[in-house]
């Protein structure tokens, strides 16, 4: 076979594999909203919510319960990724990367601050107070935050096309948030904490991506992502959960009750889907480019709505459907630039 034919064959293989990884990411990410929603009605979390709501009010109760759920989510994601690294034989590389604190692993720990206590906690708050479809679609605003940050921090250019995409995504965001608000303001009962959670998810993931990128481009993503979740576990289990326990919330007694078969099963399901959506996402980037990888990955918003409909029979508000469609359209406009344009976007 001649050189040109081989080149075509190689690039075709790369592209089809890349799209496959990105689609897997969207499916895993979308499925994650199922266990994320179900966990709220399972013991011990529903009991914890009920108990604290009676004593401290619904808002405090929701946030404290969300902390414990997010902490368990981080734990099962880390276990799933550790298993994955074991299968790949990458423990050696894991230790080597962890030791490089200054050039590399500090970025993962920094990213975990924004990813965990802001983005994932916010997602669980939005799922608990408003619903899975809203939580999924609200987070679609993250590329806007990410590209604005990249512009200010490392002078990454925002092309006209990307700016147009950002505009469409923002319109989608206004539809998603505004649509619900209008009806709720009329009734006079607005779940502000759920909306705050939605905004936290978008802002947190945008910031996380911008920071984690600094470490991920010089490390192996399988390893880097695991370290990012090691960082999140330190934040939850060594800092925040003990802190809340000291303040007087019954964190440990409820944490111990989580070891029930059904609850554990749902938590493990959340860990596997969330862990592997990150892995698939990063596997797609070198094959089809970060832009296309993120564009396809953002189809998770639609996947989440479909899975929630299939499993729970919930049809979301038309504003969420329209807003979600606008966000996905915007991310396609933003990310599907010609490769020649993309190559010059970075560094030079």
């Amino acid at each position: 076979m001649d050189l040109q034919a081989l080149k075509r064959q190689e690039s075709k293989r790369k592209i089809s594999k890349g799209y496959m990884w990105a689609l897997f990411c969207a499916v895993f990410w979308g499925i994650w909203y199922l266990p994320g929603t179900v966990i709220w009605v399972l013991n011990p979390f529903d009991e914890m919510y009920g108990l604290l709501a009676g004593k401290e009010g619904e808002a405090v109760s929701l946030v404290v319960t969300a902390v414990l759920i997010t902490a368990f989510n981080a734990l099962t994601v880390m276990l799933a990724l550790m298993l994955w690294n074991g299968v790949l034989g990458k423990y050696g590389e894991l230790v080597r990367t962890l030791k490089e604190f200054n050039p590399c692993s500090k970025w993962f720990f920094l990213a975990s601050i924004f990813g965990g206590p802001i983005a994932i906690l916010g997602s669980f708050m939005a799922m608990g107070f408003i619903g899975g479809a809203f939580a999924a679609v609200a987070a679609l605003l993250y590329p806007v935050i990410g590209s604005v940050l990249a512009y200010y921090w490392y002078g990454e250019k925002i092309s006209k096309r990307a700016a147009l995409g950002i505009l469409v995504i923002i319109l989608g965001g206004i539809t998603i948030f505004g649509g619900g608000l209008v009806t709720e303001l009329a009734v006079g009962d607005v779940p502000w904490i759920g909306y705050l959670g939605g905004l936290m998810a978008a802002a947190g993931w945008g910031i996380e991506g911008a920071i984690a990128g600094k470490g991920l481009d010089i490390s192996e993503p399988d390893v880097g992502l695991t370290l990012r979740f090691v960082g999140e576990n330190i934040i939850w289990w060594i800092i925040l959960v003990p802190l809340l326990a000291i303040v007087g919330y019954p964190m440990y007694s409820f944490a111990l009750q989580a070891f029930e078969p059904l609850t554990l099963l749902v938590l493990i399901f959340a860990g596997i889907t969330f862990g592997f959506c990150y892995v698939c996402w990063y596997k797609s980037f070198p094959l089809i480019g970060v832009g296309r990888g993120q564009g396809i990955g953002n189809l998770y918003g639609l996947c989440a709505i479909i899975f929630i409909f299939l499993f729970f029979g919930d049809v979301p508000e038309w504003t969420i459907l329209l807003g979600g469609a606008l966000c996905v359209l915007g991310s396609f406009i933003m990310f599907t630039e010609e490769p020649s344009e993309l190559e010059t976007l970075r560094g030079e």
Binding site: M1, L3, E10, P221, P286, G289
Partner: peptide, 28 residues
């Protein structure tokens, strides 16, 4: 190496077919 290239740190400057099986026979 492919990831480093896609991250803009390395540039792919030349390709040839692996005729002799020095790496993977019949691949680039």
């Amino acid at each position: 190496i492919i990831e480093l290239a896609s991250g803009g740190m390395l540039k792919d400057v030349e390709q040839r077919v692996d005729e002799e099986g020095i790496y993977k026979k019949g691949f680039l």
